[in-house]
């Protein structure tokens, strides 16, 4: 099942990249998709035992999360822009430790990437139970400690726990 999903994803990518719709190119596309999927179908998905319906639900929850994240990124950039354009440069950088309860690898990746993309914080180290975060002023560090983003990540990826 995952094998066929990988083939379909690869074939969609082929169509997007080539943009030619005659029989010759489509045939080559299908053949190459099967060929590549034969070697790498178990690399694309992490948990191979998860049923497909759950996976689709996770995908749509993730899409919902992405839109919230883009809104947060716009806020983050306006914040950084305000800091940069201020002639006094009112920054107070420091390194903080953020404890986390996430367990899966994929949620760690999503959480660390989201921290890097949102207000004034970048992840500079990942341990098993906490993240090292460089925060650029006090307000954004307090925002991070409130844990709203971690709850959203847990709602997307760790539903069954």
């Amino acid at each position: 099942m995952l094998y066929l999903t990988t083939v379909v994803i690869l074939f969609i990518l082929w169509i997007v990249m080539s943009g030619i719709f005659d029989a010759f190119h489509l045939t080559i596309g299908v053949l190459m998709s099967f060929f590549i999927a034969h070697f790498s179908w178990d690399l694309l998905f992490q948990n191979t035992k998860m049923p497909l319906s759950e996976r689709v639900g996770e995908f749509f929850r993730f899409l919902n999360y992405v839109f919230w994240l883009i809104y947060q990124i716009i806020l983050a950039n306006l914040h950084v822009a305000r800091l940069v354009l201020d002639p006094k440069l009112p920054i107070n950088p420091k390194i903080i430790r953020v404890p986390t309860k996430l367990t899966k690898d994929i949620s760690f990746v999503a959480y660390a990437n989201s921290i890097t993309l949102t207000p004034g914080t970048i992840t500079i180290g990942v341990e098993r139970d906490h993240l090292l975060v460089h925060a650029i002023d006090d307000r954004v560090a307090d925002d991070l400690f409130s844990g709203a983003m971690e709850r959203r990540i847990a709602r997307v990826f760790e539903v069954g726990k």
Partner: peptide
């Protein structure tokens, strides 16, 4: 501008990574 003005490279990463 952030890359130019911020004092150390951790802060400069804030500017480049997000902007």
């Amino acid at each position: 501008l952030g890359l130019l003005r911020f004092p150390d490279f951790y802060c400069r990463l804030h500017a480049t990574g997000k902007g």
